[in-house]
Design a protein around this nucleic acid. Structure first.
Lengths: 232, 232
DNA sequence: CCAAAAGTGTTCAGCTTACACCCATGA
DNA sequence: TCATGGGTGTAAGCTGAACACTTTTGG
């Protein structure tokens, strides 16, 4: 047993809430869950859970994600903490928000339907409880910045993807149209994508070549001082 | 009394730690305090305090700052939360880090010397307890990004400042030299500085004109869609 | 054969960068 | 008068933005 140094009063409930982004059918989506307990039972919310004594914040976020999706190796980054006194109607709870990027195809849909979870297109997002809507707004802002300077967008795509798919992904994050020629020129000039000898014919008769992101080459370039950059 | 909704187990101590930046003698400095209690008594640390039941995280950060410096209207922004189980040797404590920017001349030195506090040049920073060194690194990274896209650097300067001063400030944040002509051209082209009819002769015989940041004009430009930008 | 998506280069404007000399003045 | 820091302009290269036609092929 650890020696006690600090006063015991003023301990707080600490929660982790996860903004889980996915990309499907050309749309950026958010995984929302229907709350199964009061307060706010039946309303939509983010996936969340209370921080336990024996887990770090990062571990807690991983656990929340695992419990909902069954997925382990998911891109996860801390966003911001929310600490207004009355932000949670049930009690005073400090919430640490994380955002996750995952490839929807990897996702075990059974698990999330058990939880009354739903992949909601971002532009049809329902009202979320408490300050969860703010969290999503903040996460989206962060994501917009992040995908410009780090190749995290690929986390949202399958290992093999086409350039039109990748462009649509960026367009749905930036919420604006990009020029096809400029986009391809820029992304290909970084020399981080491997062109595969197969085509995806599901969207056109001509078919679009599959590419894959070369993580090894990226790591090498980064250690040579390279910065990923995809401005708009 | 609020109805109880959540289990009472697993409440945690939550602390706020503040990375307080100042600028003086052409150097970026950090306000560090000598810990007056165990564990780590006598070692250098950031200013911090435990979150109370009746205050938000932001309020707590303001309080920590007020108690140490006596200052109220200080630029303060949440940085990141730190939640490793054993990060604090005294107990399991989740810490929310904030960073503050303040003008050292406004600072009441008496108060901070009561607290065994010290404005430490960033490049002579002592070892700090726990993960406070990581927090400072992260804050510096954030500050570098922030000063490029928002006019927060002025928070570190007196209301009247010279262009050489401003340039030195940016150089000490970016930790690299900037071209005098390009710097002046860029900052003046934004049309946010008012040139005053006085000169600061403390650093040269010729003297450098004082300028002041025009917050009103900045607000107007921002609402017209203007983005502050000071690339390097 | 035709509709629909994939793929491909060039030009122009604006911005970033590099660079060197004169000015004012207190000591 | 001279040492010291303050102040000023221009040219070259690069990057971002705009823009339209050809290719492929399943139906």
């Amino acid at each position: 047993m650890m020696k006690k140094y600090y006063p015991d009063e003023d301990r707080q409930l600490v929660a982790v809430d996860c903004i889980i982004f996915g990309f499907d059918a050309g749309m950026l989506k958010l995984l929302v869950v229907k709350r199964s307990f009061e307060p706010g039972k039946g309303r939509w919310s983010l996936a969340g859970g209370f921080l336990r004594k024996n887990e770090s914040l990062d571990d807690c976020a991983s656990r929340v994600l695992l419990e909902l999706t069954g997925l382990k190796e998911v891109y996860l980054e801390q966003l911001q903490s929310y600490g207004d006194i009355a932000r949670d109607e049930g009690d005073r709870v400090v919430s640490v928000a994380y955002y996750a990027l995952l490839n929807i195809k990897d996702h075990n849909l059974d698990l999330s339907s058990d939880n009354d979870a739903y992949w909601c297109p971002l532009d049809e997002m329902p009202d979320l409880i408490f300050d969860h809507g703010d969290m999503v707004g903040k996460a989206l802002k962060r994501l917009k910045r992040k995908v410009k300077i780090q190749p995290v967008g690929f986390e949202l795509l399958p290992g093999k993807f086409t350039l039109p798919q990748l462009q649509t992904l960026y367009e749905s994050i930036y919420q604006k149209d990009l020029d096809k020629r400029n986009f391809r020129k820029k992304i290909l000039s970084m020399d981080l994508l491997d062109k595969l000898p197969e085509k995806d014919k599901s969207n056109s008769k001509k078919g679009a070549y599959f590419y894959s992101f070369n993580q090894k080459k990226y790591n090498e370039l980064v250690s040579d001082g390279f910065y990923f950059n995809l401005d708009v």
